[in-house]
């Protein structure tokens, strides 16, 4: 009998989310779908899959986005779910290590892409939150909260970029 499980989680940081999916996979719970904080799992062999999450350059439904996903599928990578420009991927662990990026330049590019997505949203929420753009109401505290919630992962990505750029002065 196939066991299924649905869990609800919110992650601000995709690397923490990725780590959680891999930790679930190590217990034999493999994510098969994601829709807005809802994760569906199927029971399988422990550590059967390795999970990765990526913010794509293009929309997954655009021709360029679809071409990229087809390219990944050729390499034995399965598309578990897409959410806006985010894509949830997995690959059988028996096929060897699975990392989307193999040099610092492309890792930096990915973090920058995420920051370019987060900063405008975070900034807008911050300005709403402090009431610069309109008459402030207590409900706008939610905006302020959201901007801080976005600032935490943004700061961590920024730190990673700085670290990788420093490393790039010495090696690729």
């Amino acid at each position: 009998m196939e066991m299924r499980k649905t869990l609800y989680r919110f992650f601000g940081n995709f690397e923490k989310e990725e780590a959680w999916l891999n930790q679930m996979a190590s217990q034999g719970l493999h994510c098969v779908d994601y829709v807005l904080c809802r994760y569906k799992f199927e029971q399988g062999a422990p550590s059967e899959y390795i999970y990765r999450i990526e913010l794509m350059e293009k929309d997954p439904r655009s021709p360029e986005g679809m071409a990229y996903l087809e390219f990944l599928e050729e390499a034995g990578i399965e598309v578990v779910a897409t959410h806006v420009r985010w894509v949830y991927l997995r690959k059988k662990a028996e096929q060897g290590p699975f990392d989307l990026y193999s040099d610092n330049a492309s890792r930096i590019k990915h973090y920058r892409r995420i920051l370019r997505l987060l900063l405008p949203i975070g900034g807008l929420n911050f300005f709403f939150g402090i009431g610069i753009l309109h008459n402030w109401q207590p409900i706008n505290l939610l905006n302020l909260g959201a901007s801080f919630l976005l600032a935490i992962p943004a700061w961590s990505y920024y730190q990673r970029i700085m670290q990788l750029e420093k490393e790039s002065e010495i090696r690729e």
């Binding site: 050729e74 390499a75 034995g76 989307l100």
Partner: peptide, 24 residues
């Protein structure tokens, strides 16, 4: 694409594993 990844991996005896995102 996948042929490049495999070829390079074999040639370098697993030292160079091109990530699919980097390769693309």
């Amino acid at each position: 694409g996948y042929g490049i990844m495999q070829g390079v991996q074999e040639l370098t005896k697993g030292r160079v594993n091109l990530g699919p995102g980097t390769l693309y």
